[in-house]
Design a binder for these strands. Structure first.
Lengths: 352, 352
DNA sequence: TTGAAAGCGCTAACAA
DNA sequence: TTGTTAGCGCTTTCAA
């Protein structure tokens, strides 16, 4: 209720110590005499003193704040990761500033500039594909940064993620092993998104290894939304030649695709197998349950927090290594090996 | 690449103007001579000058940052709202600091204290039910705040939300009109959450108005997660007497409940009608599609941003009024009016 | 272990 | 319109 907040000088005065001692009592309590400490603490309580962060930041050159820039905040995969990031940072004594660029590269540069102006100790970005301005700003101001959802050998110690390439290959292998040869891909939108490109590349490689080809007109780039998945199905089914399997870049797209199939009277997986990626909680709640690849969503948030703080506080945590992903097979992917469309094939189905 | 960032003094020196002019050129460009402005801008560009936010905050007593404290960040309803909040704030020239307390009141006080220390211009909270410490801190430091997801006549101009009471009543009315008399409620967890209490109260009132009662053992308090919905169904179906309808507090719980029913071989809505709330995108993608109540999720984020900034900048936006909600009827709620449990009844089913 | 004092980089009041 | 200057509240030498 006082007109202005008590300052540290007020505290020092009331405690009968110097400004320096008061500051130390708060910052390094073990370096002041217990008696001094107590008097300061008492004065703090009495005045309801709360530190002025701006002054502290100005004098110490540390803001104890990390900024994170995401494509969007409302994709569940990012939301879960942000939640873990924030919680971990809080445990480490840092606050989290968030922003989203909605997949617009230019916007990301603007955001970053504003954030640098505002002052943060470190930055967490998503992926490796950023406008030059992003890296320029970082270089210029020597801000520590972590690229989450990424692995990049050229940036040891700055990435936290898993291999999208590997995950895509394994999923494609699984689909092929289940007997599919007419496979479509709804990978997201490749522009400015190396994760989407890795997905395409991995899928293509896996198909080629089996003597199949990933047709260009069956790569349907759509946003990472339910609607994106819906519209991919709509697009694929307006052509005469149709795939038997659709590999989606995210579970969200896959669920949207399933919904669109239902609305069109297509049975999943009988008429179309659909797979997702991420293994969000929803994946096992939809009908049919989704075959997908589990990715370490919360772990990425947690480790990104630890790593950026480690970088800031000069505790390098060693090189990063790719986190593991895991195929989760459920009902949305049908085994059609042995059920050849025309000629019959024979092959053991169970357990491979 | 310079060892330290250029300061405004550097800019002023290079431009051959005073510190004050340089400051004004950046803050109020129309109040300096065009020639001066240009020289400053030129120097800024040449030095790659970026303002020091801490110094600016210290001198001006404004941080251009808003903090928002949410129960969790990964509930889609909050994620969408946060996204809108952040985008709107960015347009108004503010940054967003976020934190989550995981429904622990004590944690919220800690977070708020840390945030106040760090320095923000205003705060956005969720709901009205907060530990005393929260309001104490606010009062003590005179921080402007907005309560989102709330309506409260005692705080004119500080709330942005809709009436949970009204929404709950209307949903309960709908369920009763469809012929249900054995109605269970999975409202969330009431402790420290006035929204959940309003839901219970509204549902109870609606039932009473129809001469029905909301049985205490059919109020199943569960977290706002898929799992919460699952476990509500599990709980209800271990008793011998069973409801014909389950009203869930969120779509997430409703989808979890549907999943649990499926796993137990119960048909929705034939064996159990299920309704949700929020009308998240998923609501129309699950099978059966969810009857729910649409709430203005993004609008709440947007308006909260406008309101908190209005409060800070002394542009009061007038009293807040409750936003509107809308019942959305889909397949998960069965019309059993006219279909008596044993004796058969006849009545037109379609289109009501 | 403590106190004194010099900034940190900027804003804003005031004077010119 | 511009320059000068006194802080904003804290951290951090340096000396005592």
């Amino acid at each position: 209720m006082t007109r202005h907040r008590a300052t540290l000088a007020d505290v020092a005065r009331l405690a009968g110590v110097s400004l320096g001692s008061a500051s130390r009592a708060l910052a390094v309590p073990h370096e002041v005499r217990p008696a001094t400490l107590e008097r300061v603490q008492c004065a703090v309580a009495q005045l309801g003193y709360v530190r002025n962060g701006a002054a502290q930041a100005l004098a110490s050159r540390r803001t104890k704040t990390i900024a994170a820039i995401y494509p969007t905040l409302d994709n569940p995969i990012f939301a879960v990761s942000i939640q873990a990031l924030q919680q971990t940072l809080w445990g480490l004594g840092y606050q989290l500033l968030v922003a989203s660029h909605d997949y617009e590269p230019a916007r990301e540069v603007d955001l970053l500039r504003a954030i640098v102006e505002r002052g943060v100790d470190g930055i967490v970005l998503v992926g490796t594909d950023h406008a030059d301005g992003v890296y320029d700003l970082q270089r210029q101001y020597g801000l520590p940064y972590v690229l989450s959802w990424a692995v990049d050998e050229t940036r040891p110690g700055q990435c936290v993620g898993f291999s999208y390439l590997d995950a895509a290959q394994r999923m494609a292998n699984l689909v092929v092993e289940r007997g599919h040869t007419r496979i479509a891909l709804c990978p997201g939108i490749a522009d400015c998104n190396e994760r989407v490109r890795a997905r395409i590349q991995g899928t293509r490689a896996a198909l080629q290894a089996h003597g199949l080809v990933l047709r260009d007109d069956w790569i349907v780039e759509r946003p990472f939304t339910f609607e994106g998945g819906r519209s991919a199905v709509a697009q694929l089914f307006q052509a005469s030649e149709r795939p038997t399997a659709l590999i989606c870049g995210t579970d969200i797209q896959a669920v949207g695709a399933i919904g669109e199939c239902r609305d069109r009277g297509l049975r999943v997986p009988d008429d179309l197998s659909i797979t997702g990626s991420d293994d969000i909680e929803l994946a096992s709640l939809v009908e049919p349950k989704l075959t997908t690849v589990r990715v370490p969503t919360a772990e990425i948030g947690r480790r990104s927090a630890e790593r950026i703080v480690g970088l800031i506080e000069g505790r390098p945590l060693g090189e990063t290594q790719a986190l593991q992903t895991m195929l989760v097979t459920r009902e949305s992917l049908k085994d059609i090996a042995g059920l050849a469309p025309h000629p019959s094939r024979h092959r053991k189905e169970k357990q491979r």
